Computed example of a mutant assay.
Amino acid sequence: MTASADHLKALLSAHASGDDDRFYGIALQVAAKSARQGHTRFAKELRELIDASRAEKISRPASPTPVVQPRGELASLLTADYPETRLADMTLAESARGALEKVLHEQRQRGRLERFGFTPVHRLLLSGPPGTGKSMTASALARELGLPLFTIRLDGLISRFMGETASKLRLVFDAAAQTRAVYLFDEFDALGADRSAGHDVGEARRILNSFLLFLDQAPAESMVVAATNHGRLLDSALFRRFDLAVVYEPPSRDQALEVLSRRLAAMDTSTVIWEDLAALTEQLSHAELVKAAEAAAKQAILGGSDTIGAGQLSDALNERRRLRHA
C-alpha cells in the first residue's frame, strides 16, 4: 500500500473540511512516495488524475470563499472583508502591475509549483507614500484569488497590547495557517523600524524578532502582505524575509488623468479638456485625486446636472492641493 495511514487520515480530513488545495497537496505527496517506492505507473496515473481534476475545477465558475468573521481574541486583532476591487480597476505603474500579475500567476499555479518542490510568492512588502494604492492592492489580490481579506492594523495592536503583542501576532499567524486568506499588516512601520535606531527599546526588539520568526514560518497557503508609508525606516532584515517588495510612487500626469476619468466614468465629461488639468495633478496621490473627482461630481449632481465642467474639476483639484500644503 503506497499511502500511509497518516496520509489517508489527512486526505479524509481535507475532504471533510472542503480544503481542496490541502487535499491535492497530500495526494501529490502520496504520488511522490509511490514513485520513490518504484510504483511509477501508479504515481503517473495519480498525478494525471490530480491535474485533470484541478483543470476541471478551474474551468468551472469560481465560487467565492465566504468571509469568515473572526471570533474570540482574533476579533480584537483583525477585521474581515470580501473586496470587490480587481487589479484591472487600479491605475498603477507598469513595474508594479507586472510584479502583481506575477504574484497572481504564481498563486494560481500553486499546485504546479508545489509538484516540483517550489512555493509561490506569498510574502509581499508594499511601500510608498500614503494614498498610492497599497491597501487597495491587498484588496485586489484577495478579490482576484477569491479569498477573504483580513486586515491587522499594527499601530493599534501594539498600543493596545503592549507587553502582549508577540503572543497576539502568534494568534494571527496561527489563523493564517488554518484559514486561507490575504492577511494585510497595515502601518507596518510601527513594527519594522530599524533596530539600530537610538530610540529602540527591548520590547520593540522582541516584537520584531517574533514577527520575523512567524514570517519565516508563514504557510504558503495564505498571503502575508505588509504595507508601509515609510519603507526607508524599515529594518533591512525585513526586506530579506519577504519574497517580493513593490514600491509605489505618486501617479504620473497620465496616470493621474486616468484616475480622474475612471472615477468620473458615470458622469458626462465631454466638456473637460484633460490635458489642461494635468499640471494641477502634480504630487497628488491616487486617493487625493479620487477625492477631487468625487467632490466635483457631487457639486454637479447637487446642482441638477450629470455633466462635469472643467471649472468644477480644476477647483476641486486646487482645493486638494491647498489641503496638502495647509
Results as ranks from 00 to 15, higher is better:
residue 292 A to E: 09
residue 108 R to Q: 11
residue 139 S to D: 09
residue 2 T to K: 13
residue 144 E to P: 02
residue 268 D to V: 06
residue 119 T to D: 15
residue 4 S to C: 06
residue 170 R to T: 12
residue 172 V to H: 02
residue 25 G to C: 08
residue 285 S to V: 05
residue 69 Q to N: 12
residue 51 D to G: 04
residue 202 G to C: 03
residue 74 L to R: 04
residue 237 A to P: 04
residue 306 D to G: 08
residue 92 L to D: 02
residue 286 H to C: 14
residue 20 D to E: 14
residue 123 R to K: 15
residue 60 R to F: 11
residue 208 L to S: 12
residue 159 S to Y: 00
residue 299 Q to G: 11
residue 131 G to I: 07
residue 193 A to D: 09
residue 191 L to G: 07
residue 173 F to E: 12
residue 22 R to E: 15
residue 299 Q to Y: 06
residue 230 H to K: 15
residue 163 G to Y: 03
residue 171 L to Y: 07
residue 190 A to F: 04
residue 75 A to R: 07
residue 314 S to Q: 14
residue 50 I to Y: 05
residue 305 S to A: 04
residue 242 F to N: 03
residue 236 S to W: 11
residue 115 R to K: 14
residue 257 L to Y: 02
residue 97 R to G: 10
residue 229 N to H: 06
residue 247 V to G: 07
residue 222 S to W: 04
residue 246 V to Q: 05
residue 8 L to Y: 00
residue 140 A to C: 07
residue 76 S to C: 01
residue 77 L to T: 02
residue 236 S to R: 15
residue 213 L to A: 14
residue 15 H to P: 02
residue 25 G to K: 10
residue 91 T to Q: 07
residue 204 A to Q: 14
residue 188 F to T: 03
residue 204 A to L: 15
residue 63 S to F: 08
residue 227 A to V: 01
residue 4 S to D: 06
residue 115 R to D: 11
residue 74 L to N: 02
residue 119 T to V: 15
residue 89 D to I: 01
residue 211 F to G: 06
residue 141 L to E: 00
residue 92 L to Q: 00
residue 39 H to Y: 13
residue 2 T to R: 13
residue 44 K to G: 13
residue 278 A to F: 13
residue 260 L to E: 10
residue 42 F to T: 11
residue 229 N to E: 02
residue 173 F to Y: 10
residue 325 H to C: 12
residue 205 R to S: 13
residue 200 D to K: 11
residue 167 S to L: 13
residue 62 A to R: 15
residue 190 A to S: 11
residue 68 V to C: 08
residue 308 I to R: 05
residue 56 E to F: 09
residue 215 L to N: 12
residue 265 A to E: 11
residue 140 A to I: 00
residue 225 V to H: 02
residue 279 A to M: 09
residue 88 A to M: 09
residue 145 L to K: 03
residue 263 R to C: 10
residue 18 G to N: 08
residue 64 P to R: 14
residue 14 A to N: 01
residue 86 R to I: 00
residue 24 Y to V: 13
residue 264 L to S: 04
residue 309 G to T: 13
residue 295 A to P: 01
residue 17 S to Q: 09
residue 36 R to T: 14
residue 112 R to S: 12
residue 317 L to S: 06
residue 164 E to I: 03
residue 315 D to R: 12
residue 244 L to C: 05
residue 282 E to S: 06
residue 75 A to C: 01
residue 54 R to D: 11
residue 189 D to C: 01
residue 236 S to G: 10
residue 105 H to A: 15
residue 229 N to C: 03
residue 236 S to A: 14
residue 126 L to N: 03
residue 148 P to K: 01
residue 211 F to V: 10
residue 191 L to A: 09
residue 209 N to Q: 12
residue 1 M to I: 04
residue 235 D to H: 10
residue 276 D to M: 12
residue 231 G to V: 02
residue 85 T to K: 05
residue 200 D to E: 15
residue 87 L to D: 00
residue 212 L to Q: 09
residue 235 D to K: 13
residue 106 E to S: 07
residue 190 A to I: 05
residue 175 A to S: 13
residue 115 R to C: 09
residue 50 I to C: 03
